[in-house]
Design a protein around this nucleic acid. Structure first.
Lengths: 181, 181
DNA sequence: CGACGTAGTGCAAGCTCCTTGCAATAGCAG
DNA sequence: CTGCTATTGCAAGGAGCTTGCACTACGTCG
């Protein structure tokens, strides 16, 4: 999954590659742009614009939220970045990196699982055959309970085991459960 | 689907039954409450709180948005009302009426299709078997393209045919596409 | 049937997520 | 290094929803 040999038009190698792509598209490489990409490259999963703007951990470099959004929008147009909407809460941004992804999200613990669209094709075709809808889970994921939360529906928490997704992580920074329902 | 014989605890008959249920729960039946329920009963599909507050077509009775939300919240606690989140845009409220429902929504035309959870069980169990997630589509629906929009992806619009859902309707009042994506 | 206590209302303000307007700044071409 | 202008940061605005608070009107009880 990491470093597949074929190169698609949008492919890029590391942060410098992404920056080169930005410049090649006729855009300037500003500090904000670098910070946004840096945050995305060092993130372990989807992150919110706010999280990027705040400047995580070490780096004191904070960028205005507005600029973060504007950069994310541009990077998305360039095919470098994409975002998902997990239930409530802010949109979460990530690098396109190794191609399209679709998502499963736990409405209880916030865990996000990224899947290759091909893995969801059986589900998609079943839906299409039965209901005529061509489902897409890349922007609005499948919402439900992860194995751990479904199992521990009444029981106390157990160590969660997961093995299907490309990456899985609980509580994407900047997400977390709201009081709404 | 309409008027199934078995009576579950939350069942109610028409608007008066719902009002009786409200009163029986120790709540007062206010004008706002009546207006909200009236709007939901006369709606042809999920509607936004704003739509209810504005007072549709004839009835000049407008209720403050705040009260609409408070009533919807209470009615939801009582099991009379439920809501879905279609992509972007406001939450859409509807009567629980004939039991639980799950939804498919078209991200292009805004069409919403309500399904009995049983109809989606094959899809759900396939997802659970493969990925360990117990999916729920009652609050966050399956998003995709309806048959009409998927077919007319490049072609001009055709008359849309649909037959699987309980109700299907384009553009739930108060929804509609935003500029965001 | 009329008074009274309080649930519920409307208004204003606030909060979150995000967008827009605009003057000042800083990429980068020349 | 100069200059053009894409980008930035700040302030303000907007959608969707919640909270605080004084006033209103349900519905009970005398």
């Amino acid at each position: 999954m990491t470093g597949s040999p074929e190169r698609d038009p949008e492919a890029f190698e590391g942060i410098d590659g992404a920056l080169a792509l930005v410049r090649a598209s006729g855009h300037r490489v500003s500090t904000a742009c670098r910070v946004v990409l840096g945050a995305l490259f060092s993130a372990e999963g989807p992150v919110s614009a706010q999280f990027i703007a705040d400047g995580q951990r070490g780096r004191a470099l904070t960028v205005d939220l507005t600029s973060v959004y504007r950069n994310l929008e541009r990077l998305e147009e360039l095919g470098i970045v994409r975002h998902v909407h997990l239930g409530h809460g802010p949109g979460l941004y990530m690098l396109v990196g190794s191609g399209e992804k679709e998502f499963l999200a736990c409405e209880r613990c916030g865990q996000v699982t990224a899947l290759d669209p091909a893995q969801l094709e059986p589900v998609r075709s079943q839906i299409e055959k039965r209901f005529g809808y061509r489902a897409r889970f890349g922007h609005f994921p499948i919402i439900g309970l992860c194995a751990a939360c479904a199992g521990a529906d009444a029981a106390p928490e157990r160590d969660q085991q997961h093995s299907h997704g490309d990456y899985v992580h609980a509580h994407a920074r900047g997400s977390g459960e709201r009081h709404r329902h």
